[in-house]
Design a protein around this nucleic acid. Structure first.
Lengths: 128, 128
DNA sequence: CTGGATCCGGTCTGATACTG
DNA sequence: CAGTATCAGACCGGATCCAG
């Protein structure tokens, strides 16, 4: 997955039942994996340095972070700037396009809360 | 990943900067993988039989679909009903909880369109 | 026939160590 | 600090096999 991703060539048409599926798949092609959205979230919260992002995304390894950032950059969600200082610093920031993901992230956050309530709360009561 | 997933124990509080990250992670724990959201989308569109779902999710294998459905059932997003008819049929439907994911899916769909426009459209123009 | 389980091979991910 | 190298293990996909 080291290139800009599209599952196929398809037209943009409005309100064709399947296009819903198709656009979701386009989104998932780019965002799939455990880490991409968490990285985007970390960046949207202000982290910009490599190690800062790593700290905001618990569990990620340097390798995965490096690869995922490269992938996100290819997909124009993240911009990478190297400053030739010492010690060397690299800044990662969201592109304007990357920032539009915040709506998705917000919904995901809302749903995460609902999900936790669901599992912790009414596990006993059956729910059609 | 054959159990209900939570990355840790944490409280539900409103507007604590990190809880945003935490709830997103909760959501991603459950939805991670290439297929879960696509399966949820297929089900939300009305597919219910195993093979129907398989057709709506291009590229998925029977094995993955079977495993993912089990996982989704464990997380109470999907309900499975076996009808002892001949030929036997199994119906998968979204639980009420599963249906609440449609907001997330909708945002994902919107973003998928924006993303395609971004990549196809103004690839030449730099975008700070 | 549908819905799935099992085995096997390949790719992707993770831990640790190391470099500029 | 910001990554890369290496290897082991987990995960995914394909083919095959099984039960109702």
């Amino acid at each position: 997955m080291n290139d800009i991703n599209f599952n196929s060539h398809h037209e943009i048409t409005a309100s064709c039942g399947d296009c819903n599926a198709i656009t979701v798949r386009d989104a998932l092609d780019v965002l799939s994996g455990k880490w991409k959205l968490q990285i985007m979230l970390a960046l949207s919260k202000g982290a910009s340095r490599f190690k800062q992002v790593a700290k905001e995304v618990p569990g990620i390894t340097d390798k995965m972070l490096s690869e995922e950032l490269k992938d996100l950059e290819l997909n124009q969600l993240v911009k990478r700037e190297v400053h030739a200082t010492f010690p060397p610093t690299v800044e990662y920031t969201l592109t304007n396009h990357g920032k539009t993901l915040d709506r998705v992230i917000a919904e995901l956050s809302v749903w995460g809360i609902a999900h936790r309530n669901q599992i912790f709360g009414k596990q006993s009561g059956k729910q059609e």
